[in-house]
Measured scan of single mutants.
Amino acid sequence: AEEIWQQSVIGDYLARFKNDRVKALKAMEMTWNNMEKKEKLMWIKKAAED
């Protein structure tokens, strides 16, 4: 689920960090860890469908 979420937001994060992939990935990891369980559930369901 986290991978699907990352694939959907990586472009936004890379743009925000001027294509600094290391910073973008760290920010994504922090965002994922801070997400509410119900927000993650949507992505977990999406992962299950694929």
Rank of each mutant, 00 (worst) to 15 (best):
residue 22 V to L: 13
residue 15 A to D: 10
residue 39 E to G: 02
residue 26 K to C: 04
residue 47 A to T: 05
residue 8 S to K: 06
residue 36 E to S: 15
residue 9 V to F: 05
residue 49 E to S: 08
residue 30 M to H: 13
residue 1 A to S: 05
residue 24 A to S: 05
residue 36 E to T: 13
residue 4 I to Q: 09
residue 37 K to V: 13
residue 49 E to R: 05
residue 42 M to S: 08
residue 13 Y to D: 00
residue 38 K to C: 15
residue 36 E to D: 15
residue 46 K to F: 12
residue 26 K to D: 08
residue 34 N to Y: 07
residue 29 E to N: 10
residue 40 K to S: 01
residue 23 K to C: 10
residue 1 A to F: 04
residue 5 W to N: 01
residue 39 E to T: 04
residue 48 A to R: 10
residue 39 E to K: 04
residue 45 K to C: 10
residue 14 L to S: 02
residue 6 Q to V: 13
residue 17 F to V: 02
residue 38 K to F: 13
residue 18 K to I: 05
residue 43 W to V: 02
residue 25 L to W: 06
residue 12 D to L: 08
residue 20 D to Y: 01
residue 20 D to T: 00
residue 6 Q to P: 01
residue 38 K to M: 09
residue 42 M to V: 14
residue 1 A to D: 04
residue 49 E to V: 07
residue 29 E to G: 10
residue 17 F to W: 11
residue 39 E to W: 03
residue 20 D to V: 03
residue 13 Y to W: 04
residue 29 E to Q: 13
residue 23 K to R: 13
residue 48 A to W: 12
residue 37 K to C: 14
residue 48 A to N: 09
residue 14 L to A: 02
residue 42 M to R: 08
residue 9 V to R: 03
residue 12 D to T: 08
residue 27 A to C: 09
residue 21 R to L: 13
residue 26 K to R: 07
residue 3 E to I: 13
residue 16 R to Q: 13
residue 7 Q to S: 12
residue 37 K to R: 14
residue 18 K to A: 12
residue 30 M to N: 11
residue 35 M to K: 02
residue 46 K to V: 07
residue 26 K to Y: 09
residue 12 D to I: 11
residue 44 I to T: 04
residue 40 K to F: 03
residue 19 N to R: 04
residue 24 A to M: 08
residue 44 I to A: 09
residue 2 E to Q: 11
residue 12 D to C: 11
residue 47 A to G: 04
residue 39 E to Q: 05
residue 1 A to I: 04
residue 20 D to Q: 03
residue 40 K to N: 02
residue 37 K to S: 15
residue 32 W to S: 00
residue 14 L to V: 04
residue 16 R to S: 08
residue 38 K to I: 12
residue 40 K to P: 00
residue 42 M to K: 14
residue 1 A to W: 08
residue 24 A to T: 03
residue 49 E to Q: 05
residue 25 L to N: 08
residue 28 M to K: 01
residue 29 E to K: 10
residue 14 L to Q: 02
residue 26 K to F: 07
residue 35 M to C: 01
residue 19 N to M: 13
residue 10 I to E: 05
residue 27 A to D: 04
residue 45 K to L: 14
residue 33 N to D: 10
residue 46 K to M: 14
residue 14 L to M: 10
residue 25 L to Y: 13
residue 50 D to G: 06
residue 47 A to H: 08
residue 30 M to G: 06
residue 26 K to N: 08
residue 30 M to E: 10
residue 38 K to G: 13
residue 29 E to D: 08
residue 27 A to T: 04
residue 4 I to Y: 14
residue 15 A to T: 13
residue 25 L to M: 14
residue 12 D to M: 08
residue 24 A to P: 00
residue 15 A to W: 07
residue 21 R to H: 14
residue 8 S to R: 04
residue 37 K to F: 15
residue 3 E to P: 05
residue 27 A to Y: 03
residue 8 S to H: 15
residue 46 K to I: 10
residue 25 L to T: 11
residue 14 L to D: 02
residue 2 E to H: 11
residue 11 G to V: 10
residue 23 K to L: 12
residue 13 Y to T: 01
residue 35 M to N: 01
residue 50 D to S: 13
residue 5 W to M: 00
residue 7 Q to P: 01
residue 36 E to C: 09
residue 27 A to V: 06
residue 32 W to H: 01
residue 21 R to D: 05
residue 7 Q to H: 09
residue 34 N to M: 12
residue 45 K to Q: 15
residue 17 F to I: 01
residue 11 G to P: 06
residue 24 A to V: 07
residue 14 L to K: 02
residue 20 D to M: 02
residue 13 Y to S: 01
residue 47 A to L: 06
residue 3 E to Q: 11
residue 19 N to L: 03
residue 3 E to K: 15
residue 24 A to G: 01
residue 23 K to H: 06
residue 5 W to F: 05
residue 3 E to N: 10
residue 46 K to Q: 05
residue 3 E to S: 13
residue 17 F to K: 01
residue 43 W to R: 01
residue 31 T to W: 06
residue 31 T to Y: 14
residue 39 E to H: 06
residue 46 K to N: 07
residue 14 L to P: 00
residue 37 K to D: 14
residue 27 A to P: 00
residue 37 K to Y: 15
residue 32 W to I: 01
residue 19 N to W: 07
residue 37 K to N: 12
residue 48 A to F: 12
residue 6 Q to K: 10
residue 42 M to P: 13
residue 22 V to H: 08
residue 18 K to T: 08
residue 5 W to Q: 00
residue 42 M to E: 07
residue 49 E to L: 11
residue 19 N to I: 01
